[in-house]
Amino acid sequence: MTSISNTSQVSPRKGDTDGRPATDAYDVSRAHRPLPVWRIAAWLILGWICLQAVMIVALNDNFGWGVVGKYLFHPNILDGLTVTLGLAAVSMFLGILFGLVIAIMRMSPDRLLSGFAGGFLWFFRGVPLLVQLIFWYNMSTLFPEVRLSIPFGPDLAVWETNSLISPLTAAIIGLALHEAAYMAEIIRGGLLSVDHGQVEATQAFGMSRGRSLRRVILPQAMRSIVPPTGNQFISMVKATSLVSVIAMSDLLYSVQAIYNRTFEVIPLLLVAVAWYLFIVSILNVGQGFLERHFGRSERGAVEDDVKAEEAEV
């Protein structure tokens, strides 16, 4: 008992003449913090490394910054950049579209549909993208003629494979199908994350499945779909560089075409690096914006709404 009462009381400091604790002296907000020795050491080491790296890069003529500046906005490079962006956007769009269809099929109670979707995932996730691209590019050796048809739909047309599978179509088909397999799993995960009671509520209202998906399920699933999709898009932009092996004139291919002529390999690769980083940075900003949009029923945005409402009143 005595020890408890002793510790619960603030004992007077040595030197206090009247024996009462000087309460101000104990105020923790006045306390001196110990010097963060390890953090300062880490800063110093990191700073030194960064400085060295910058010196190496700046003082080494082989980087050829002049050459980088010369080619950064070269028409051929900008054409390649356009191809890369277009390819990434189209393949991503198709990938998300097919991915959504595959995800819904995979979740179907029908064994045949979910089995087909499972097989699709197994193949297109299992085979390396580079192999798929080369495979599509060389389709003509397998099938001299090809019928293009919508999944489960009618044949749209019959073409000679060589006229149909240009580097562009091979690239789009390869990238889109590969992406679809990954997006299907991301979308399925998102759909599964929505509480089953939401589905039941829409059923009880007699809402059609399409409308339920569009109005209730997908908007809620988006919160867990958007972040990984952003990563996928960034991967996609970089994956497009693989199409240079099938002679598709994307950013990397344009760069290679120039350095094969001028032998300025490193400076031209730096041009490509600069553009890839630039695109990815912009995508990061867009992803943050989308995440805030679909999270608007969560705390932060909602408080803003309420504040706005209160301001109106």
Binding site: E200, A201, Q203, G206, Q220, S297
Partner: peptide
């Protein structure tokens, strides 16, 4: 058909134990 079943459900309201309000609306 599913569509006919949906039409039948539309004249019945239901209140759930866990509310099942749409959280994004």
């Amino acid at each position: 058909s599913d569509a006919a079943v949906r039409r039948q459900r539309r004249k019945i309201g239901m209140v759930f134990q866990h509310f099942n309000l749409f959280p994004h609306l």
